[in-house]
């Protein structure tokens, strides 16, 4: 167990819960605010992560790119109405480095389509680096590593 205190753990766990609720409540416009202005967000697979592949299904290295993704979802892209339900595990604190506190958090996401069809959409883990400089921890980095390298035909809403 790392020496990082429980206040930090608690603060990160709180933000994680807010993050999941933000997406599941369809308040996607607020989603980029969980990240630093200069950040890294990727959705990839465990196999690609293991392999060291740089390219991913989603890639953003600025908060602006995250905002653009939401604007595109709202204004440009055409897809069937749907919602997610995130179930997160407890963050495991892996250590602290210059960039921030490194954590790993398992997730499961169910997807609910307009007609009520509910599927287990994705399972995986968040590999995060948290900036804890201010009151609320912010994501400097979030790698969404899905367990499977098979993706549903549509991954519109962020994980």
């Amino acid at each position: 167990m790392s020496t990082i205190n429980n206040d930090t753990f608690f603060a990160i766990a709180r933000v994680q819960a807010d993050y999941a609720r933000c997406i599941d409540d369809d308040r996607l416009e607020e989603w980029p605010s969980f990240f630093l202005e200069s950040c890294l967000y990727k959705i990839t697979s465990a196999a690609s992560h293991r392999e060291g592949y740089e390219a991913s299904v989603v890639f953003a290295n600025s908060r602006g790119m995250l905002t653009d993704r939401i604007t595109a979802l709202r204004e440009a892209n055409i897809y069937e109405r749907q919602a997610y339900r995130h179930i997160l595990g407890m963050p495991s604190i892996l250590g602290e480095e210059a960039q921030g506190v490194r954590t790993e958090t398992p997730f499961m996401v169910a997807r609910i389509m307009l007609d009520g069809t509910t599927d287990l959409f994705a399972t995986g883990r968040y590999l995060d680096v948290w900036d804890i400089g201010s009151n609320t921890p912010k994501l400097a980095e979030r790698l969404v590593v899905c367990d499977s390298s098979r993706f549903d035909t549509l991954l519109a809403i962020p994980l």
Binding site: A55, S56, M65, L154, L155, A156
Partner: peptide
Amino acid sequence: LTRLKQANLVGPAGFISMEDGC
């Protein structure tokens, strides 16, 4: 880096190809 960014255009989350998958 440009290629990594432009990979956002394609695939299941692709800005210009997510509709093609559906």
